[in-house]
Amino acid sequence: MTTPNGVRWGRDYKVTISTDQGAEVIIKPPMQIRFRIDNYPGGNNVDVAEITVFGLKRETIDMLLSSHETSKGDRQNDYTNIKIEAGYEGDIGQIMDATIITTSMSRQAPNQYITFHCRGFNQQQENAYIVRGWPANTPYADIVRDIAAAYGLPVRVLGNLDLGRALKGYAVQGSAKVELNKLRDTLVGKQGLYALRGFEWSIYNGVVVIKALGGSAPDAPIEVSATTGMIGMPKIGLNFITVETLLDPNFIVHQRINLIAQSRIYSGSELSSINPSNIDPNAGSGEYQIFSVSHSGDFYGGEWKTSLEVQRPR
Rank of each mutant, 00 (worst) to 15 (best):
P218M: 04
A149M: 13
N205G: 03
I147C: 06
G237Q: 13
A176S: 09
S216M: 03
I222T: 15
L161Y: 09
V178A: 13
G215K: 12
D162C: 03
G152A: 05
V208R: 12
S202I: 05
I203D: 01
L196D: 11
N205R: 15
G189F: 12
G192Q: 12
G214D: 04
V208E: 03
S225M: 08
T228Y: 05
V157G: 04
E223I: 07
S202D: 13
K190G: 01
S202L: 08
V178C: 00
V208Q: 03
F199C: 02
Y170R: 15
T186S: 06
G152D: 11
G215A: 07
A149K: 15
M233N: 11
G215R: 13
T186F: 11
S216R: 11
R156I: 04
K235M: 13
N181L: 14
E200T: 07
K211S: 15
L153M: 15
L213G: 03
R165T: 11
N181F: 10
I210F: 03
K190F: 08
I203L: 01
P218D: 05
R184I: 01
T227I: 09
D185N: 14
N205Q: 09
A176M: 06
I203F: 00
I203H: 01
V209I: 15
K177I: 10
T228W: 14
A212I: 08
E200F: 14
I231R: 14
S175I: 01
M233I: 10
R165N: 11
Q173G: 03
L213V: 01
V172N: 09
L167I: 14
T227M: 07
M233G: 00
G215H: 10
V208Y: 09
L161P: 10
L180T: 02
A212Y: 10
M233H: 13
K190P: 04
G237E: 12
G159E: 00
A148K: 13
G232F: 03
L196V: 06
L213K: 05
G198C: 00
A176R: 12
G189C: 05
K177Q: 15
D146C: 03
G159S: 06
G232I: 04
A220N: 11
I210D: 09
Q191I: 15
G169T: 07
G198Q: 00
N160D: 15
K211L: 05
G169Q: 13
W201Q: 02
L161W: 05
S216C: 08
A149I: 08
P221W: 09
A148L: 10
I210Y: 00
R197I: 00
G164E: 02
S202Y: 15
L187T: 01
V188T: 12
G189D: 10
K182G: 05
Q191H: 14
N181C: 04
V207L: 03
G169N: 11
D219C: 03
I222W: 12
A226L: 13
A171F: 13
D146Y: 09
I147G: 07
I236H: 03
L180A: 00
V207R: 06
L196E: 10
G192N: 12
D185T: 09
A171Q: 15
L163V: 06
A176F: 06
P218T: 05
E200I: 04
L153Y: 02
V207S: 02
V155F: 05
V207D: 00
A150Q: 12
A212V: 01
L196A: 08
A195S: 11
K211Y: 13
I231V: 04
Y170N: 12
G192S: 07
N181M: 06
N160M: 07
